Simulated assay, not measured.
Amino acid sequence: MSLSVALTKGRLEKKTVAMLERMGYGTENLKDKGRALVFEDTKKDIRYFLVKSNDVITYVNHGVADIGVVGKDTLMERGNQNYELLDLEFGKCKFCVASLPDQDVFQKVGHVKIGTKYPQVAREYFLSRGIDVEVIKIDGSVELAPILGLADGIVDIVETGTTLKENGLVILEEVCEISARVIVNKASFKLKRNEIMAVVRDLESVVKEDAHKNGFEG
């Protein structure tokens, strides 16, 4: 029974394709793709297609993709109606609350204004802390919001923290860690359980191999 797999374009795509190649899957078409968006595996009965992160969830939700690879940040912001079966342990970064050094949003009296690309994540986090929050959706560089006075602080994805430092911002708190995840359509999981679990087990073996190797190197 054939499988369809939705991959997030960009860095997650490249990392996932590298894992599939190590698993012995036929990824030649994915590696030399030109402008194509849909690819057949040359060794397995699998079709891959490349979409933006939000669309991975949409395609899996509607059963067009049986399996999807997407960042936990997107899952947290969008909500997930599917099964999340595996943490791929790459694409690692963190959701953080940051502000200018003299603007600690957790010490502010009254409601706090937070700029972010992830309004759902920011709102839930501050409400869980019992803080009255006004969330301002920003699509571009969120670091500008506290600098220009639009917001008291920001919630954003932080990998190295370099961009924050260069703009004079400091991390106040880490909300949670995020990484690439494997999600599966619930109906597909009933109909194609064996085929899906074969792929998941293959991916898991690469994750464990890397963890083992990094443990020795560490």
Rank of each mutant, 00 (worst) to 15 (best):
M1V: 13
S4K: 15
A6T: 10
L7G: 00
G10V: 13
K14G: 12
K14S: 15
K15C: 12
T16Q: 05
V17K: 07
V17Q: 05
V17D: 08
M19W: 11
L20F: 15
R22Y: 10
K33H: 12
K33E: 10
L37A: 12
V38D: 02
V38Y: 13
V38I: 14
F39H: 08
D41L: 09
K43P: 05
K43Y: 08
K44S: 15
R47F: 11
N54L: 15
V56K: 03
T58R: 15
V60M: 02
N61G: 05
H62Y: 14
G63C: 07
V64M: 08
V69M: 13
V70I: 14
V70F: 06
T74D: 10
T74K: 06
L75N: 11
L75I: 14
M76I: 07
M76K: 09
E77Y: 06
E77S: 00
E84M: 09
L85G: 08
F90T: 04
F95H: 02
V97A: 04
A98V: 05
S99Y: 05
D104Y: 00
K108T: 01
K113M: 08
Y118R: 04
Y118C: 08
P119Y: 01
P119N: 00
V121N: 00
A122E: 00
Y125I: 04
F126W: 01
F126M: 02
R129M: 07
G130E: 00
G130W: 03
K137G: 12
D139E: 14
D139S: 08
G140S: 14
E143G: 11
L144P: 04
A145C: 09
P146C: 11
L148V: 14
G149H: 01
G149Q: 06
G149V: 03
L150C: 07
L150Y: 09
L150E: 14
A151Y: 02
D152W: 02
D152L: 03
G153C: 07
G153H: 04
G153M: 02
V155A: 05
I157R: 11
V158H: 04
G161P: 07
T162S: 10
T162D: 14
T163D: 12
K165S: 10
K165T: 08
E166I: 03
I171V: 06
I171M: 01
E174S: 10
V175Q: 04
V175E: 06
E177F: 04
V182K: 03
S188A: 04
F189E: 06
L191K: 10
R193M: 07
R193K: 13
E195A: 14
A198Y: 12
V199C: 13
D202H: 01
L203C: 09
D210A: 13
A211V: 13
G218P: 13
